[in-house]
């Protein structure tokens, strides 16, 4: 699937898709769900998130 096709499917510009791919922009929850539905998979399969290590005070 092309960036332009994905952009059209989720209602953003192609440049926004590029920014998401590069990890420069975190999409809204709504767009994240739309992306995962386009690929017919779950959010966790498309996006990853690592919790920051918080040192105990």
């Amino acid at each position: 699937m092309s960036q332009a096709a994905l952009a059209k499917a989720i209602g953003v510009t192609r440049q926004t898709v590029i920014a998401i791919e590069k990890g420069h922009y975190s999409p809204s929850l709504e767009s994240a769900f739309r992306i995962s539905r386009v690929f017919q998979t779950t959010l966790e399969d498309v996006f990853g998130w690592e919790e920051a290590i918080v040192k105990p005070v």
Binding site: S2, T13, R14, A19
Partner: peptide
């Protein structure tokens, strides 16, 4: 994504 467009990122 399989078919990567060129990464020209300048929006209108």
């Amino acid at each position: 994504m399989h078919n990567r467009d060129n990464d020209k990122t300048t929006t209108f």
